[in-house]
Amino acid sequence: MADSADPSDTSKAGRAGERLAGAVKKAAGSVVGNDALRAEGELQSEKADATKEAQRAEAQAEQKREEAEAEARAEELRVERERLAAEDTRQEREERAEADRQTEAQRAEAETARKQESVSQATRAREQETRRDEVEAVRERGEAETRVRDEEARAEQARGAARTLEKVEEEQR
């Protein structure tokens, strides 16, 4: 499966496909005794897991960036309040600064609450997606293992039939 340019573009289906392909290669490698194919399957499954983990880390980094930006904005507002306060009398400065602090605190609290809720929703969605991916991967692995067992049984039947034919041919000679 081709790597996309941006890891965030990797879809759930793509990761599930990578995991399934890895499981199939691993199973096939184990069945035929091909360690390289089995290792390739393990690597492919690990790659899908690493992609998912990278996306989680990217989301956490984005949250940290947003928090830093909010802090920078709060600092800019604080500096502006101090400049304005220097222009007014002491009493006016104190009244204005207090009103600004309360307004900014309320705005910052509201913005923080909104961002936290947004991050919580995104986290819950990612966790649900992860659980669905895991269930799907387990189901797909079970199906793949069933197909492998079926193929092994058919191969054993074919070998038995071949042995029977060889015995018949030997008896006819």
Results as ranks from 00 to 15, higher is better:
A125S: 05
T146N: 09
G142H: 10
A61Q: 14
A137F: 01
E169N: 13
A23W: 00
G22Y: 01
A144I: 01
E67G: 02
R154S: 07
A61R: 14
E95V: 09
K167Y: 11
R93L: 05
Q106E: 12
A5F: 13
Q128F: 05
E145I: 04
A158S: 07
E92Y: 07
E80G: 03
K115S: 06
E129Q: 12
K167W: 10
E156G: 05
A86W: 06
A144S: 14
R93E: 13
Q55H: 05
R149L: 12
E104I: 01
L43E: 12
A86G: 11
E104R: 11
K115L: 12
R19P: 00
A155H: 11
T51I: 13
R131H: 11
S8Q: 14
E76I: 01
G142F: 03
G29L: 12
Q106T: 07
E170Q: 15
Q172W: 15
A99Y: 06
G41M: 01
A27L: 14
E151M: 12
E129H: 03
R101S: 06
E169A: 15
A162E: 13
E136C: 04
L43K: 13
K64C: 02
A59W: 00
K26I: 01
G41N: 03
A16K: 06
E117F: 02
K25V: 00
T164M: 08
D150G: 06
G29F: 04
E152L: 15
A99W: 10
T146R: 15
E87K: 12
R132M: 06
T123I: 03
E76M: 08
T89A: 14
A36C: 03
V168S: 10
V168W: 11
T146H: 12
R96C: 02
G17K: 08
R173Y: 09
E80K: 14
R149V: 08
D150Y: 05
K12C: 04
A137I: 01
